[in-house]
Amino acid sequence: MSGAGKVVLVTGVSRDLGRRFARAAAADPAVDRVIGVDVVPPRGDIGEVSFVRADIRNPVIAKVIAREDVDTVVHMSVIATPGSAGGRMTMKELNVIGTMQLLAACQQSRSVQHLVVKSTTTVYGASSRDPAMFTEEMGPKRQLRTGYAKDATEVEAYVRGFARRRPDVRVTTLRCANVLGPHVESPVASYFRMPVIPTVLGFDPRLQFLHEEDLLEVLRHAVVTDVHGTFNVAGDGILMLSQAIRRLGRSTVPLPSFAVSGFGSFIRQARLADFSPEQLAFLTYGRGVDTTRMREELGFHPVHTTASAFADFGSNLPPRTHGSERVLDGLTRTLAAATDESRGALR
């Protein structure tokens, strides 16, 4: 365990999980100060955290690190949805260009000793060729070409490059499973909040979840320990999609695979959920990751299993009927249009 007096900079504090982690880190006795950075102020209480309005895409972030004498950087500002960023191009800029500028600032700094990156198991992709469980040494079986998955892969590549250039800096990359909990806003959470849940006909994907409180705790754990490396982080066990939906008491509508992308467009336009290509692949094939290294090397043991994280999410989800008719109507129209298109292609 490192000594007290850490000065921690946290990116992405305008979002709920970033703000809550910054507060949790500030309360840790091993941490002296926490500086939260984002382009807009956090909406909630940040307690003892010092907020600095700064865009990590701008080289000014190097001045913030130098002025505050930061020794630990926690990068949490890789975002998953283009809608929240103002479009796909802006999302890519924030994710990839922002990470490059942040790493350049860390590389210049003489004070930075530790970099913690919140990554995602999305870097493994989701396909019919996947292993039962991905270990940290494995990569995706198909090239990741779009969206958040591609951004996260590029971010990790830049982080590895930084680690080679600055071997004196400890680098900890946390590949987190889909985060769920009562307060989480994410594509997966929005999907399970839908009044009627579409599934892909003939598929029952395996799912893993990480409870939001365990996410905050693994980030804190990574900050105050000297362990470095890349770690899969997920609650123990898996849930099949069919099990998860039954536990919510939701109705399902199985869609043939040729109709799913059209329905994804409908629910994005209706702002019900975000069905990106990687989201569709995940809800078709699922994904499992091995967490042996998390337990044995990182020394972290989540409080919640996959099942209990999902149960806590579901327990705070009131029964919904509002919007069911609109979703069912959209499903019907999408399926009819996709069927007509499929028939036309066969003529």
Rank of each mutant, 00 (worst) to 15 (best):
V78N: 14
A307P: 04
L248R: 12
A149I: 00
R326Y: 07
L9W: 01
D168G: 07
R142I: 12
F192Q: 03
R293Q: 10
A80C: 00
H322K: 15
V169L: 02
Y191M: 03
D151E: 07
L272P: 01
G299Q: 02
Y124S: 10
M76C: 15
A177R: 05
L210C: 07
V253H: 13
A336S: 13
V73D: 06
A337K: 10
R193S: 08
T146N: 06
L280E: 14
G12C: 12
D168C: 05
V227T: 14
D55M: 03
L272I: 12
P59G: 02
T146I: 07
R19N: 11
F203P: 00
A281G: 02
R145D: 07
L283W: 11
P42H: 03
V184W: 12
L215I: 03
T321E: 15
A338P: 06
K6N: 01
E156V: 06
A336R: 11
P198L: 02
D55Y: 04
M240K: 15
F310H: 07
Y158Q: 08
H322L: 15
A22R: 04
A244L: 05
R343P: 02
L219P: 01
R67H: 02
A62W: 01
L283K: 04
Q279M: 14
T153D: 05
A22P: 04
D226M: 02
F192V: 11
V13F: 09
L94D: 06
S342V: 07
L115V: 13
V123T: 13
F231H: 08
P195Y: 06
V233M: 11
F266P: 10
T321S: 15
R23G: 04
V64M: 01
V96P: 11
G98T: 09
A311W: 06
T199A: 07
A337C: 11
P302W: 09
F300E: 04
R160I: 05
E341C: 02
P140L: 03
A62E: 04
E136M: 08
S84Q: 10
R142E: 14
E93D: 15
T99N: 10
P277W: 06
F266D: 08
Y148T: 09
S77D: 09
V116S: 11
G181N: 10
P187Y: 08
H301P: 01
M138N: 09
R53M: 11
G36H: 00
G139C: 07
F258A: 00
V200E: 00
I61G: 00
S84G: 14
R326A: 15
A149W: 03
R247Q: 15
P29N: 11
G314R: 15
G229F: 07
G330F: 06
D38Q: 02
R129G: 14
G87W: 06
A105D: 05
P198R: 00
T230P: 11
T291Q: 04
G288P: 00
E48I: 00
L239E: 11
Q279P: 03
P198Y: 02
V260A: 05
R287W: 01
R326I: 13
M133P: 04
A307K: 08
T99L: 09
K118I: 09
E48Q: 08
S308R: 13
R206N: 06
S77G: 10
R145A: 07
A189F: 13
V184H: 13
T199K: 07
H221P: 03
